[in-house]
């Protein structure tokens, strides 16, 4: 409940305050958000599986974000930023889908 509240508050604050994102971070924000989403879905699935551990969630969340941003950064440096970020998004998307499938099986038993 508190976690859901956190998400809602985050969205509301983001919409209301409109913070300025530093230009350096800006290109990595979308990919970081997708990576974080992946971590959240993984965490939700783990919770439904009954194997949720907060420490693991924190670590996976942060590492997902950092690694995704790193990959994009590296890609930009190598001149293949567009392709690499597409790749990252595809991989994360697949993971999100598989996690969502597991969650669905838990929630709807189908």
């Amino acid at each position: 409940m508190i976690a859901v509240l956190g998400l809602v508050v985050g969205v509301v604050v983001g919409l209301l305050v409109r913070p300025e994102v530093p230009a350096v971070v800006e290109p990595y924000l979308p990919i970081a958000v997708v990576a974080a989403l992946d971590a959240v879905f993984g965490g939700l699935r783990a919770m439904l599986d009954g194997i949720f551990v907060d420490k693991v969630f924190v670590v996976s969340f942060l590492s997902n974000v950092v690694v995704a941003a790193l990959i994009v950064f590296l890609g930009d440096k190598l001149g293949v930023g567009a392709q690499l970020s597409t790749g990252v998004v595809v991989v994360l998307g697949i993971r999100i889908f598989s996690n969502a499938a597991a969650i669905r099986r838990h929630v709807f038993r189908a």
Partner: peptide, 28 residues
């Protein structure tokens, strides 16, 4: 996990991370 809102360490940590996620999402 959802209904009786309990303030546990796990919930708080997850809330913080989800807050960050929501912030990033909204900004983006």
């Amino acid at each position: 996990a959802v209904w009786p809102p309990r303030v546990t360490r796990a919930q708080l940590i997850v809330a913080v991370l989800l807050f960050v996620l929501g912030l990033g999402l909204a900004i983006q």
